[in-house]
């Protein structure tokens, strides 16, 4: 994949491979993943369940090590997690023992009280949770919890945001709302986003480019440019064409 962009890529995957040892056997999960992500790009990693999407994202985020290959961000090899690159988990990574306010303030410990308050307030309002600052996650719906987690990530102004099926546990209506929200925030903040999903529609609604992974062991089947303006018309012909193309790549019939 060559990009028309002349700038050096923000995130580069260099031949990432990974196996897990299980009961003496080795399970090949990822094979030779190469990818260049531009600064400010919204990338979806799309693939069937169990193909290694989470493993790949965890390696890129520095939570797990690859067997071969490396990841560089701004030319530096990733050796571990970093507050400049925040991970949004599917299963609620926010802390249930802390209020919404304290959760969002987590990454701002080095700032003065005043600065911190300003950022926390602005971020909470950006994700539409004003008025819930004192609430505990237990008192919030799934969608609101995920907003808190997004706010916690945005508060530190990260360069890159990793999202691993962040809306997977939400009902379909909330999920649609959250997608619109994340696109709005992305357009406003210009972050680089790596978003894992197994949902074809989700990837077309969100991404600039969709990286389609094969069944395990995960390899890149192809990279699909979406090239539609936001807000996207889910009924348009282009949308349907991309959808068909993705289904073909995933090896799934698009008529039932």
């Amino acid at each position: 994949m060559t990009s028309a962009n002349q700038e050096p890529a923000k995130v580069v995957f260099n031949g990432i491979s990974k196996s897990f040892g299980r009961k003496g056997e080795s399970l090949r999960v990822l094979e030779d993943i190469n990818l260049e992500v531009q600064d400010g790009e919204f990338i979806c990693l799309l693939g069937p369940s169990g193909c290694g999407k989470s493993t790949l994202l965890n390696i890129v985020a520095g939570f797990e090590e690859s067997d071969a290959g490396s990841v560089t961000i701004d030319g530096e090899i990733v050796a571990g997690p970093n507050p400049q690159r925040v991970f949004v988990f599917q299963e609620y990574g926010i802390f249930p023992w802390a209020s919404v306010w304290d959760n969002v303030a987590l990454g701002l410990r080095h700032l003065s009280e005043q600065e911190r308050a300003k950022i926390v307030e602005a971020t909470i309002s950006m994700v539409g949770l004003s008025g819930f600052e004192a609430a505990y996650p237990m008192e919030l719906s799934g969608g609101m919890k995920q907003r808190v987690e997004v706010a916690r990530a945005l508060a530190v102004s990260p360069d890159v945001i990793y999202m691993d099926e962040p809306f997977g546990a939400l009902d379909s209506l909330t999920r649609l709302g959250m997608r619109a929200e994340i696109v709005r925030i992305w357009q406003q903040e210009k972050k680089t986003i790596l978003f894992v999903t197994h949902d074809v529609d989700e990837s077309i609604q969100l991404a600039d480019r969709i990286v389609v992974l094969t069944e395990r062991p995960g390899r890149i089947a192809d990279i699909v440019e979406v090239g539609l303006e936001h807000p996207r018309d889910l009924g348009s012909g282009e949308y349907g064409a991309i959808k068909n193309r993705l289904y073909d790549l995933l090896g799934v019939a698009h008529t039932i």
Binding site: A61, F63, G80, P81, N82, P83, R85, V86, F87, F89, G93, I94, F95, L106, G107, V156
Partner: peptide, 8 residues
């Protein structure tokens, strides 16, 4: 644990 690690 990973959240804690991520935020340093």
């Amino acid at each position: 644990q990973r959240s804690a690690e991520n935020f340093g």
